[in-house]
Computed example of a mutant assay.
Amino acid sequence: MQESEKIKLGISIGDLNGIGCEVVLKTFEDARMLDFCTPIIFASNKVISFQKNELGLDINYNGIQEVSKALDGKINVLNVWKDAPEITFGEATAQGGEYALKSLVAAVDALKKDEIDVLVTAPINKNNIQTKDFNFPGHTDYLAKELEGESLMFMVTDSLKVGLLTDHVAVKDAPAAITSKLVKSKIKTIENSLKMDFGIRKPRIALLGINPHSGDNGVIGKEDDEVLKPVIKELMDAGHLVYGPYSADSFFGSDAYKNFDAILAAYHDQGLIPFKTLSFGKGVNYTAGLRKVRTSPDHGTAYEIAGKGKADHSSFKEAVFTALQIFKNREEYRELTSNPLKKQKLKPTR
């Protein structure tokens, strides 16, 4: 990408019956957003026209047939399909999943080909999008396959970053899935992301316990003693700043999280409940560990308010800014690491 060019920001439109289109269009209804990037929405003119009219949004867009035809200073809509799918706000339909997948596949293909620089995904319905080509519990696993990386679901704000050892895994299956190998892999991914994507030279990472009170020395489960503690000691001995396991019930309420650059939670709700409580509407779901940048808002399809013009686009807007900043941070990191004299510019840890 030439320095004078704006970052090409691809957007997969998500479930057409949810709030995805609404939060996307509301974000770019503010023309100042076009100063930061060139947005390319993977959908169709007919869908965007219908959505903007139904929602009463005052926007103009540039319909294109190829990504290369996208114009700076415009909201670009790449016509992935020509037909006009039926949009029934608030309903989980097979057709809603079908077109969400068409948009996602086209956007990821463009990302892989470097036709776009970053990807921001609007919310999908994890049930109706399932096909033989998409047999995944969500975006994260699909992107890990397509982009061949060790992915990490990483929920981020400026002041709080929470990664997950296990993400869309049933609670009953989570303890067995947490192995020494998995913990080391996720720690490596989160460390690399903090350095490369967020400019933190020596990150401090906290690991939350698997069981209540981190097992109370084996009284409430042995996984913390047998899996987490040995790995933490091994990593500490090797010079990594990894601490824990901490009892999850008091970790956030006591503000202990403020002493760390990131927290690694054992399972989905252990990490996302406190994250969303502290930062809902400002948080971003970032897929760390991939060779490309992908973010999304911290909410779902919100069928209950779809089509009513009530959706808050704050999180989607944050997802856009986060994707752009990470892309810039990665470029700077590559420059710094290729020039040893500039390495000291990386931010020190707290």
Results as ranks from 00 to 15, higher is better:
residue 3 E to H: 15
residue 4 S to Q: 15
residue 5 E to L: 00
residue 10 G to Y: 08
residue 11 I to S: 08
residue 11 I to R: 05
residue 12 S to D: 07
residue 22 E to G: 06
residue 23 V to G: 04
residue 24 V to S: 05
residue 25 L to F: 03
residue 26 K to S: 06
residue 38 T to G: 01
residue 39 P to T: 02
residue 43 A to S: 15
residue 50 F to T: 02
residue 52 K to E: 00
residue 52 K to F: 07
residue 62 N to A: 05
residue 64 I to H: 07
residue 70 A to N: 00
residue 73 G to L: 08
residue 82 K to L: 00
residue 84 A to M: 12
residue 85 P to F: 11
residue 86 E to Y: 04
residue 87 I to K: 03
residue 97 G to A: 04
residue 105 V to W: 02
residue 107 A to R: 04
residue 108 V to N: 05
residue 120 V to A: 07
residue 129 I to G: 09
residue 133 D to P: 02
residue 136 F to W: 12
residue 141 D to Q: 14
residue 141 D to R: 00
residue 146 E to S: 01
residue 153 M to Y: 04
residue 161 K to G: 00
residue 175 P to M: 02
residue 178 I to Q: 11
residue 178 I to V: 14
residue 179 T to D: 03
residue 185 S to K: 13
residue 187 I to H: 02
residue 191 E to Q: 13
residue 196 M to V: 13
residue 199 G to F: 11
residue 201 R to A: 14
residue 201 R to M: 10
residue 206 A to I: 10
residue 215 G to M: 01
residue 219 V to Y: 11
residue 222 K to P: 06
residue 236 M to W: 09
residue 240 H to W: 03
residue 249 D to H: 13
residue 251 F to C: 07
residue 252 F to V: 09
residue 252 F to M: 07
residue 256 A to M: 14
residue 257 Y to G: 05
residue 259 N to M: 10
residue 260 F to Y: 15
residue 282 K to Q: 14
residue 282 K to P: 02
residue 284 V to Y: 01
residue 297 P to E: 06
residue 299 H to C: 03
residue 303 Y to V: 07
residue 311 A to W: 02
residue 312 D to Y: 05
residue 319 A to Q: 10
residue 320 V to N: 00
residue 321 F to D: 10
residue 333 Y to S: 14
residue 335 E to R: 13
residue 338 S to L: 13
residue 338 S to T: 04
residue 349 T to K: 06
